[in-house]
């Protein structure tokens, strides 16, 4: 993993956001966001509910449109006339709080769908990749089950594997463990930690501070649509700069 990180420090950022703002109608959700992410970097984004974390990462695969500033992903600018948004999305994996697995497809079919339907891979090829990633998330034995037959933690691991099957350059996580029962959180975090060790570029919205300390290169703190503070994890937790960060940390670390 260190190889990749080293190598990427010199290259241009894979994600580059500059002066980006977004409104829902007249309500300004994001204000002048500036953020560069290099290949292999792992970011944790945190902040109070409603601060715009989800909106920010949803702008990165253009599930949401921004109105001002620019977002460049791997050299491609996101804008409302872009032609190849679907191709771009195949290169950005996204993991949702609510999994969003396809309930009418088996686990294996969930994983082979995109490679076969979008990339035109053969079934055997897609299955091979799928089984490889199911092994990685440690549930190969569930391949022929339907999502509803799996626990929440297993479903989320399937969702992660599903994204990985497209061999994405970046993985976005939007509170992947928030909908899970406490005893299932760690199995998902474990998979995410393993993934980080392979050098995957990751942006994770999460309040799991243990994960942030262990895995993140940088922690971003957001409030009211702005990036308030960013720092490497140790500094961030031990020496927060702004009052709002201190308040937020005291609230979530209390328990």
């Amino acid at each position: 993993m260190s190889d990749l990180t080293q190598e990427s420090t010199n290259s241009s950022p894979i994600i580059s956001i500059s002066d980006m703002s977004k409104w829902y109608g007249t309500f300004k959700v994001l204000t002048d966001i500036n953020l560069d992410v290099k290949l292999g970097e792992r970011l944790v984004i945190c902040g109070p509910s409603g601060s715009g974390k989800s909106t920010l990462i949803r702008c990165l695969n253009r599930l949401e449109a921004h109105q001002k500033g620019s977002i460049m992903i791997d050299g491609v600018e996101l804008h409302d006339r872009m032609k190849d948004v679907d191709k771009l999305r195949t290169e950005i994996g996204m993991v949702f709080q609510s999994f969003n697995l396809f309930p009418h497809l088996t686990v294996l079919e969930n994983l082979t769908a995109a490679p076969m339907w979008v990339r035109g891979e053969s079934e055997s090829e897609a299955k091979k990749t799928a089984m490889f990633y199911l092994e990685r998330v440690k549930i190969p034995e569930q391949a022929d089950k339907y999502p509803r037959q799996l626990s929440g933690g297993q479903q989320q691991r399937v969702a992660i594997a599903r994204s990985l099957c497209m061999n994405p350059k970046v993985m976005l996580f939007d509170e992947p463990t928030s909908a899970l029962d406490p005893e299932m959180v760690s199995e998902v975090l474990e998979v995410m930690t393993d993934l980080a060790e392979t050098g995957m570029t990751m942006l994770c919205v999460t309040h799991e501070m243990g994960f942030a300390r262990k895995v993140a290169d940088r922690v971003i703190f957001m409030d009211e649509g702005k990036i308030i503070e960013e720092n490497e994890p140790n500094e961030f937790f031990t020496n927060p700069q702004s009052e709002r960060t201190k308040l937020f940390l005291s609230q979530i670390l209390q328990h």
Binding site: L63, R89, I92, N100, F102, A113, A114, W117, R162, M166
Partner: peptide, 21 residues
């Protein structure tokens, strides 16, 4: 809505999402 988002986020176009998901 999550099904739409899950599908579109994987790069499925509108028609494919409609037909398959």
């Amino acid at each position: 809505r999550g099904q739409w988002e899950g599908s579109r986020a994987m790069g499925f176009k509108f028609g494919l999402t409609m037909r398959k998901i």
